[in-house]
Structures are given as C-alpha cells and as structure tokens.
C-alpha cells in the first residue's frame, strides 16, 4: 500500500528522475540553488500530472450531476438533511466561479431554501474532490479526510444558521420573482462525457497554471531561502495570532487551491501549524473579494455580512482545532 502511495501520489520516481537528470548536467544535489531548482521542477510537474488525471476523472463523475439535476434532487428534501445533501453534492457538481450567481438564482427561484443553497455554495469551492486527492499527496490521507469532514461541517452549519435566522428576507427581490424555466436535458453519450472531461482539464489548466507556478515558486522560497526562524516568529504554532493572521491575509486573496497547496506544504515543513496553513487555504478558496462583490448583486448586505463573518470565524475555529490535534494527524 505504501509503495503504491509513494509512487502514485507522492511520485517519488519523478523526484528521483529529476535528480538524476540534474546530476547528468553536472549539478551537485547538495547546492542550495540546485535543491530549489529540483523542488521547483518536481513540484510543478507533479501538480500538473495530478491535476490533469484528477480533473479528468472527477469531471467524468461530475457529468452525471449537472446543477439542473442537483436542483431537482435537492428539491425533494427539506431541512437539515437537505443541507447535508447540498454540502455533499457541492463537492461533485461542476461549476466555474463565474456561474455561482446564475446558480444561486436558479436554486432560489426553484424554491430551494436559502440555507440549502448556501450549504452548497460554501462546500462547492471548499471541498473540491480534486483537492482531497492533492491533500493526500502533499500531506497524508488522514489530513485529507479531516479537511473534508470539517469543510462539510462548515457548509452544513452555515446553511443551518442562515436558515434559522430566516435570511431569505435579505435576498434581492428579483431573485425570488418568476418561476423556473426547465430546459431540456441532453442525453450525454460516453463520448460526450469524455469530451466534457477533456475540456474541463484544458479549461482548468489554462486558468490555474500561473497560480501553480507562482505557488510553487513561493513554496520553494519558503522551503529553502527564508529562514525558518523568521517564519516561525510570525506564524509559529506558539503564536496565538497566527491563525487569524493567516485567515485575514487569505480572505481577500483570489487563488486556486492548487496554487495554495505548495505554499501550504512549504509552510508546514518550516514549522507552521497545520491548522494555520489549512485555515489559510480555506480562507483563500471560500472567500475572495471578487466572489463577495458578485454575491452582493443577489443578496443584501445583512446576509452578505453574516456569510463573510460566519466563514471567517468558522475557518479560524477550524485552524485552532487543527493546530491542537496536529500531533495525531501528521
């Protein structure tokens, strides 16, 4: 099992192979600059391979769950169970961030409770199926499972809170007006699903490659060039303010989870708490200035503020909990 894990998710063969090639060019693997070069090449290639394989596989599964179907499934349920289901479906329903508003409108118009829709909207960027496998690769399966569990929990509790406080009052009136136009659903053949998955891979690679390069570069800098003592002075496990700091830096940032992972890995290797790093990743993916500005078009500021404050506090709590139980996970 471990051999398979090392070969597929850690790609130790790739690391060895690149080291071998670098030494063929007469580079010494004990030079700091060569170590960084090796890390940069290895991490970039590893993430791109994982990304492509994962996105393809996951898109294939996702092609069975378009938002139109998710909406139909969710419409059959109520209350707490509906929110759990929404959080779960959020992990497999495909949609790009620019579709989140039409999706919000589409769900709400169909009569879905705002709490259910928010459970979906929180879990969808946060607990992406691809990110689960990447967390397994970068950290280990235990961390991945813990991340998914708290991510889903955050989504379900958030939806519940919004529903209890009757926040549907604060949805812009035009969203509630009018009924649903059911569009005809096209039957997809296996070839269609293959094409869809292939398109998704190309689309996502085109969108995130720059984040990955920048992420790996920053990761390499943190890994080998910035003294660990500096990083620990600001973000060390013993600093109570490291978690809020990580969240506040992460919230306005707009990046992809794939770009933040190499930074996360480097930070943990330099002695930053796992909770601090995960809180940063969650803040970056769940909340970003562009998504908040978009959301402002469909909900009033009361609901928007509740959403942002809830996510910020929730993510901070998760950060502290993970820092406390880090010993069990890594």
């Amino acid at each position: 099992m471990n051999v398979l894990y090392d070969a597929i998710l850690k790609m130790t063969w790739l690391s060895d192979g690149i080291a071998w090639i670098l030494t063929q060019f007469g580079l010494q693997m004990d030079q700091p600059l060569v170590i960084s070069l090796h890390y940069f090449i290895y991490d970039t290639i590893k993430i791109f391979i994982l990304l492509s394989v994962l996105i393809y596989t996951i898109s294939y599964i996702q092609s069975y769950f378009p938002p139109e179907r998710t909406r139909k499934i969710l419409g059959r349920f109520n209350g707490f169970f509906a929110r759990i289901l929404a959080a779960l479906l959020g992990t497999i329903t495909p949609f790009c961030s620019c579709s989140s508003i039409p999706l919000f409108i589409g769900f709400t118009k169909a009569g879905l409770n705002v709490g259910v829709t928010f459970s979906f909207l929180i879990s969808s960027p946060l607990v992406d199926l691809a990110s689960v496998f990447l967390l397994m690769s970068v950290f280990n399966p235990k961390v991945a499972i813990a991340y998914v569990s708290v991510g889903l929990l955050l989504a379900v509790i958030g939806g519940t809170l919004i529903s209890w406080l009757k926040m549907e009052r604060y949805v812009e009136p035009f969203v509630l007006k009018g009924g649903v136009t059911e569009l005809e659903e096209e039957k997809m053949t296996h070839k269609d699903r293959h094409n869809f998955s292939k398109d998704q891979v190309m689309d996502i690679v085109r969108k995130v490659w720059i984040y990955i390069l920048v992420g790996v570069l920053i990761g390499a800098l943190i890994h080998d060039w910035i003294p660990a003592s500096w990083i620990q002075a600001v973000l060390g496990e013993d600093k109570w303010y490291s978690v809020p700091l990580a969240v506040l830096v992460g919230v306005p940032m707009y990046a992809d989870i794939f770009g933040t992972l190499p930074i996360a890995e480097a930070l943990v290797s330099q002695g930053v708490g796992l909770g601090t790093v995960l809180a940063f990743m969650m803040a970056v993916t769940t909340l970003s200035l562009p998504s908040i500005i978009l959301l402002k078009k469909v909900v009033k500021k009361e609901l928007l503020i509740l959403f942002v404050v809830y996510c910020t506090i929730g993510i901070m709590i998760i950060g502290y909990v993970f820092n406390a139980i880090q010993g069990i996970l890594i």
Binding site: P67, E68, C96, I101, I105, G106, V175, T181, L183
Partner: peptide, 11 residues
C-alpha cells in the same frame, strides 16, 4: 444576471 436568469440557465 436578472436577464440571464430569465432564460433559466444556471451555467
């Protein structure tokens, strides 16, 4: 978005 939603699309 209001006009887009009237066509019933979510993506």
């Amino acid at each position: 978005y209001n006009e887009i939603s009237q066509y019933g699309i979510m993506r």
